[in-house]
């Protein structure tokens, strides 16, 4: 029996590894071509070069797009995390209509991005609000809020409210209780929410496509390069750099979450 079970484990593990190969192979093409000495992203490879990375560093238009994306990402992630905190705080302490509010904050997950994008475009046009990074940030708030609220809710749900009572019992007032007990315990959740929301915003193409006007974000810039490539390898070099950076970010986020009671990755909390 023991041997049969080990056999089964090995079969399942082999399949899981194949599956990972399927997930990783396409993604790993990006760094591969970012070092390829040809402007055409196709086989056969033509030799090793680092020139796309120096070209990337010198690419003004791309740098502007990158900074736009960073601005939007930071604004959207901070705002949605703050709003997510209020949602988590209220909904974990019992309030009439709890399910309704939870459902409403999850609703954006059930609307395809294209629909969210065009309907926001219509609204901004009707209200004569000029399209800019500000309108993108507004759109990203709707996009990120379910993720932020989800991560923070799962963190707050694992939080034993009697710990706050214990702190009050031991003589701390409400504010000191928040700083000495609540905040340290939910801090990993806040960090995970910030990172997750940032990545969601940073990776969004469709909402920004409709709402950015002339303020190109990075995905919108990449979209242009994919359709009319003349600096595509620069994009691949940047993509590879971002891949590395976001891998580090995600590993940090998960590590922060692991320090708490939850053992599921951030994305699971949705």
């Amino acid at each position: 029996m023991t041997r049969a079970r080990y056999g089964k484990v090995r079969g399942a593990a082999a399949y899981a590894i194949l599956y990972l190969l399927f997930l990783y192979a396409p993604v790993l093409l990006l760094p591969l071509f970012s070092f390829n000495d040809s402007v055409f992203v196709a086989f056969p490879l033509s030799g090793l070069t680092g020139r796309w990375y120096s070209a990337m560093a010198a690419d003004e238009e791309m740098r502007i797009a990158l900074f736009n994306s960073l601005k939007v990402g930071i604004a959207a992630s901070v705002a949605s995390t703050l709003l997510g905190l209020t949602i988590a705080q209220v909904l974990t302490r019992g309030i009439p209509g709890r399910r309704l509010f939870a459902g409403f904050s999850n609703l954006p997950l059930f609307i395809p991005d294209i629909v969210l994008g065009i309907s926001l475009l219509i609204l901004m046009t009707r209200l004569a609000i000029p399209l800019s990074l500000a309108t993108v940030i507004l759109g990203h708030l709707a996009l990120c809020l379910p993720f932020a609220a989800g991560v923070l809710l799962s963190r707050f749900e694992g939080f034993d409210l009697s710990l706050e009572d214990a702190s009050r019992d031991l003589g701390e007032n409400a504010w000191m209780t928040f700083f000495r007990v609540t905040l340290p315990l939910v801090l990993p959740g806040i960090a995970a929410s910030l990172i997750l929301s940032f990545v969601v915003s940073f990776d969004d193409f469709l909402i920004a496509f409709f709402l950015c006007g002339t303020d190109t974000t990075l995905p919108v810039y990449i979209w242009g390069e994919l359709r009319f490539p003349y600096k595509l390898p620069n994009v691949l070099a940047l993509g590879s750099t971002i891949l590395l950076a976001s891998t580090i970010l995600i590993v940090c986020a998960e590590w922060l979450r692991r320090r708490g009671t939850q053992s599921q990755p951030a994305a699971v909390a949705i």
């Binding site: 899981a16 990972l20 192979a25 396409p26 990545v199 990776d203 976001s246 891998t247 970010l249």
Partner: peptide, 26 residues
């Protein structure tokens, strides 16, 4: 488990546009 979940999630966080583009290359 943690490592496996992380491994499944990581490719997901690379630019969606570039991942789709990678399939065009494949």
């Amino acid at each position: 488990k943690f490592l496996w979940l992380l491994l499944v999630t990581i490719p997901f966080w690379t630019s969606y546009l570039l991942r789709v583009f990678a399939w065009k290359v494949i």
